[in-house]
Design a protein around this nucleic acid. Structure first.
Lengths: 124, 124
DNA sequence: TGACATATAGGAATGATTCCTATATATTTG
DNA sequence: CAAATATATAGGAATCATTCCTATATGTCA
């Protein structure tokens, strides 16, 4: 697996993602990056996001539409059913769940994703 | 909100979903239902799944592709990174998380979804 | 039974994501 | 440095899940 090179485009994509905590979609991120690289294509954004995920530099949040998160520390999310936003929840992650689940299911469990469902404070 | 009527198609879709624990996609479920209603269309499947979700008869699992779960008791899932399957994890759900998250974020939190990430026992 | 509301089939439209290809850019080697 | 080679990019086409549209069918209720 190559792709370790940090190209100009890739670096700028990562920088722009680090500027926000809003978990932008690929398209939104493309708009942000285009303020600095007006000719970048959406395909390049997707390809580089995929590479950054594989490198572990960012996380992919899968929902109706993919969103990307530059914060790779463990944390949870709140999905607002009203506006569709995804907000960080700064809560201690629950420990020991993986071991319990492995006992029940077998297999190898590496981690967990937890999303809260509700209405964010802006929509309340 | 109407849609409380239980039509022939809707009933059969629900019955077929209850037969399995594999969390089929809309397309897979359509194939299953077509053994009994050969002329049903995929649009009808999607529309009825949406209605059943709103009625609370089933749950939608959102990932790269939507999957549907006829089991509406609280439970978690294991997503296999090898084969893409989604398997039930029969583990006591963690209590009190919603309250903690609400304190941290504000807003109104109704529940949470938790997916384990790993390799299922069949792929190990 | 007739009038009306709602559901269906079938296919078109949409929109996110991936794929393809010719060109551009970076890296390595002599 | 220059040529040879590898990888990345832009741009657009293709794909695929999902939603939307419309004419017809079916169920409901008086």
């Amino acid at each position: 697996m190559q792709d370790l090179r940090m190209t100009r485009q890739r670096k700028i994509i990562l920088e722009e993602l680090h500027k926000v905590t809003t978990h932008p979609t690929a398209y939104e991120l493309c708009q942000m990056v285009r303020t600095r690289l007006p000719r970048i294509s959406l395909g390049t954004i997707y390809r580089n996001l995929d590479i950054l995920v594989r490198r572990g530099d960012i996380n992919k949040i899968e929902g109706e539409e993919m969103r990307f998160d530059g914060n790779i520390c463990k944390h949870y999310h709140l999905r607002c059913q009203m506006c569709g936003s995804v907000e960080d929840v700064h809560l201690e992650t629950v420990n020991g769940l993986e071991r319990q689940a492995e006992e029940v299911c077998g297999g190898k469990i590496y981690g967990h994703h937890l999303d809260f469902i509700g209405i964010c404070k802006h929509c309340c």
